[in-house]
């Protein structure tokens, strides 16, 4: 690639990155995206800022160390007549360059620890959703909302049929043509998304029915493994309504790359309406719901 090409790409990416960091949160990955997204939950800025601070620190150290090295490479070359000196240690310098990194590390550790503590606190949640991974789809069961337990709202969520047809070997179909509106959703769309309300602390309890999966929506700022026999908990509080996309992040077999996650964040009123509809329809065709329950025997087991 020519340097002009690289420059063009970087300019395009920088413009894109600026646009996406500026106002709306990034709901899905963008072409030429260079950095982590800020996310769309109250906690998601934590990893984002930590990433930026750590990257900044590393860049500064890198520039200092590598420039020292390049200065050495240019000044102390034999071809310029440099004669080797004899010294081979200097205690002061060694103490200094051991101490300074320690101080930097303490700062980073402080930032990371406080962010981690807030992540680990799942108390005070207003809603609980149970997430179960299967080869190769997700199941969502709504457990409670605003202190009331929810009756039989749960469903499977798997790769949308257009992506699924396109991704077959030799399908001859164009991945760029898989779109919802003008968003390119190839392998990042599902038949039935998880629907949750905005501005609500949602507790996710996550497990698996077969092998280990990992539930990851970058907009939440975290991923956590779905492990058979173990129930993991994490929380998210989305700040902006929208559609947020993610994928299974732990290798789980042949279709690991084809079990996306879509979270639709609705306003509280819209969510209440949606939930009521779901509860009503789950009561009518009880048989359908029952088969779904049977399909998830391991999910009920506490680890």
């Amino acid at each position: 690639m020519t340097s002009g090409g690289i420059r063009r790409s970087f300019t395009a990416a920088a413009a894109l990155a600026l646009a996406s960091f500026g106002s709306a949160a990034l709901a899905a990955p963008g072409p030429w995206q260079l950095n982590m997204e800020r996310g769309a939950s109250t906690w998601s800025p934590v990893p984002y800022h930590l990433n930026n601070v750590a990257l900044g620190v590393c860049t500064v150290i890198g520039v200092l160390v590598f420039s020292a090295m390049f200065i050495a490479i240019f000044r102390f070359r034999k071809s310029r007549g440099a004669v080797a000196e004899k010294w081979s240690h200097n205690t002061t310098v060694e103490v200094v360059w051991t101490t300074i990194p320690v101080l930097i590390l303490i700062t980073l550790a402080y930032l990371a620890t406080s962010g981690l503590t807030s992540w680990a606190d799942t108390t005070g949640s207003q809603m609980t959703v149970k997430v179960t991974g299967y080869q190769w789809k997700w199941r969502y069961d709504y457990v409670d909302y605003l202190g009331k337990s929810i009756d039989k709202v749960g469903f499977m969520s798997k790769l949308d049929s257009r992506s699924d047809r396109t991704r077959q070997l030799g399908s001859g179909m164009d991945p760029f043509a898989v779109k919802v509106g003008d968003e390119n959703t190839y392998l990042l769309d599902v038949d039935k998304p998880l629907v949750v309300p905005v501005d609500t602390k949602i507790r996710f309890v996550i497990t698996s029915g077969d092998v280990i999966h990992s539930w990851w929506v970058p907009a939440t700022g975290w991923k956590i493994d779905a492990i058979p026999g173990i129930i993991n908990a994490a929380w998210a509080n989305f700040t902006t309504p929208g559609t947020y996309r993610g994928q299974c992040a732990e290798l789980c077999g042949q279709d690991h790359g084809f079990m996306p996650i879509v979270v639709e964040v609705k306003s509280k009123a819209d969510f209440a309406k949606w939930l009521a509809e779901q509860e009503a329809s789950s009561k009518a065709p009880a048989a359908a719901a029952q088969t779904a329950q049977v399909a998830a025997p391991v999910a009920g087991k506490q680890g």
Binding site: Q33, P218, G257
Partner: peptide, 19 residues
């Protein structure tokens, strides 16, 4: 960049944003 933008490892195919 791919990782920061959200591409998981060990996947044989990916969204066009990662192309």
């Amino acid at each position: 960049f791919l990782g920061l933008a959200g591409m998981p490892r060990r996947i044989p195919d990916y969204n066009v944003a990662f192309a």
